[in-house]
Amino acid sequence: MWRRRGLVLKQCESIGVSSGGIIVVAASFMGAVLGYQFYVAFRLFNAEALLGGTVGVALFRELAPVMTAIMVTGRAGAAMAAEIGSMRISEQVDALDVMAVDPIEFLVTPRIIAGTIMLPILAIFFTAVASVAGAAVACGVLDLDSTIYWTQYAKVVDTIDLVHCTTKGAAFGMILTWVGCFNGYRAQGGASAVGLATRNTVVASCLAILLVDYILTSFLPFGYLRLKVES
């Protein structure tokens, strides 16, 4: 794989670096909404101080990896399905075979590796931006003390939440690239096959991400399965 590192880097740029902008925008609004909604809910109990911790845990455990994966699916997953699908229907994949270049190694593997590496980073990136956005809304607009927000954030969020975030990110990255490559690789027919592959990729990736999210949440350390066992 080392000799294909250039391809991996290109895919890293395509999946990770190029998705940075959209992640920042999505995370900003997501964090802001969380800040608003949790503040309203906690204020019913005079427990606004818990806002920071709740936002942090929600982002690390669920929202950041899932939202990041869905955003990247819509952007990069669909793009790679379309790209590989186009190559398939224009017989470029067959040409690779003829040239004794393994298309899996050339087209699929770099994308999966890049997705697995880049998604955790993007998820962390998402979390950081969304946390700041949540703090901006809660403290700047809703008058919550920023010290309380960040103190509770640090107190409630644990290392295991980071593990959840990165693990899920890696898993989702692998899934969405695998689904995108699979659909693109299996495209058959004319131009409509490319559109079909793209649509299937987005739908299947989103569903697979949510399904795997449930499974990982259940089985990861300190997941809900353990809570169930303890109770």
């Binding site: 955790p120 980073i121 962390i124 979390t127 640090a154 290392t159 980071l162």
Partner: peptide, 16 residues
């Protein structure tokens, strides 16, 4: 990008 992400992971680890 990767370095920045890793730095964020480190910073979060220390912070939390």
């Amino acid at each position: 990008f990767t370095l920045f992400g890793l730095a964020l992971v480190g910073a979060f680890t220390v912070f939390v």
